[in-house]
Design a protein around this nucleic acid. Structure first.
Lengths: 209, 209
DNA sequence: GTCTATACTAGGATAGAC
DNA sequence: GTCTATCCTAGTATAGAC
């Protein structure tokens, strides 16, 4: 997810590295898992506004345990929000039409999960670690996949700017709910905005109808 | 400011419209003014994180007075943050180069105020009223100024999408501080991203070097 | 009308007993 | 590992003094 959404952590640097999570007591494992499951659900539903207390209640445990196990609300959030949403296949297609494909992918209806995750991340973007993860994800997913295929100067910069463009669109359609855009034909937005993104990646290519 | 920043209110719908602010008691006026001045300073410095209590302390009054006078922190914020930053002159120039001019305007160094205001608004964007003001500002400033000059279909939609693009760039350079972009030559970003914006506004125009 | 004092609710985080 | 009790900060509301 652009702007960038990333965040797919499997270990937190906050806890002083227990030798292996699978060696924890069964009770501890179950509690941890219950907290994490509840957190995933509530973060998805309410974004970063979901309170630690509400998550604890949902998991049937004491609020203090949430902090005890995950260090902080921010660390728990980083652990729970991820965006492994199959964007890879979109990026793997032909470079000449990736702009429209990206826009179409994110605007495709029936993807409430994408929207939920975007809103949750956007809401938490004031936290430094969340922004760092976004940048890391942008670099690892988008820049790594597209920059080598580009020609001309500033290949990495152009991909970063294209991702920023995509983020601007998601902000508009997912957060602002601008009436001009929500009422517009999706295909038109895909064509217009997709070509604008494409223009940064392959400036010389001709455009489709 | 795009994405959109607007918010230049002079009267709040929350209070039931006192006939004229100048008719309030001197003491009341002075207190109100002190609170508002302190709020402007702290909101600019710390964004929406500036607490009501800190604002009250800065103004030398009781925290309850802040709420008493302005209704809520959100209402005070809406009253204090504005973006009348002279974007009008940028929009008034020739349409054919407005994309690059817009990017250059926002990337121009020595404009810490622009950045401060953007960050404050982005941080408060989870509030419905703030987002509404952003949309209103986008419509009144950008769409109103540019859409009539465009040719072809979807004129208003294309301006809204161009503003979204601009918002994506500001998010990148003001919030993310992506090393790829902060290290890049400003002129390159102006050319690349400005042309991408221009492409939505005047798709047929040729591009500069 | 304007301000002071107090208090309510909610949130995140921590200390220390079991 | 788990829980109880507690602390701190925050936004907001209200009663009552001037």
């Amino acid at each position: 997810m652009p702007y960038g959404c990333g965040v797919t952590k499997t270990s937190s640097p906050d806890r002083p590295a227990p030798p292996d999570e699978r060696q924890l007591r069964p009770a501890g494992r179950a509690t941890r898992a219950a907290i994490e499951e509840a957190a995933r659900r509530l973060f998805a539903e309410r974004g970063f506004d979901a309170s630690v207390r509400a998550i604890a209640h949902e998991a049937g445990v004491d609020p203090a345990l949430v902090i005890r196990h995950f260090g902080s609300k921010e660390a728990l959030f980083l652990r729970c929000v991820d965006t492994s949403t199959g964007i890879g296949t979109v990026l793997d297609g032909p470079l000449e039409t990736v702009g429209r494909r990206l826009v179409a992918y994110f605007l495709e209806p029936g993807r409430p999960l994408l929207r939920q995750r975007y809103l949750a991340l956007a809401q938490a973007a004031h936290l430094d670690q969340v922004r760092e993860e976004m940048n890391r994800h942008t670099a690892e997913t988008y820049v790594a996949a597209l920059a080598p295929q580009l020609t001309g100067p500033d290949r990495e910069l152009r991909v970063a700017l294209a991702v920023a463009q995509l983020g601007g669109l998601l902000n508009l359609v997912f957060r602002q709910e601008d009436p001009l855009v929500t009422a517009a034909d999706t295909d038109r937005v895909v064509a217009l905005y997709g070509d604008a993104i494409q223009h940064l990646l392959t400036p010389d290519a001709a455009e489709g109808p």
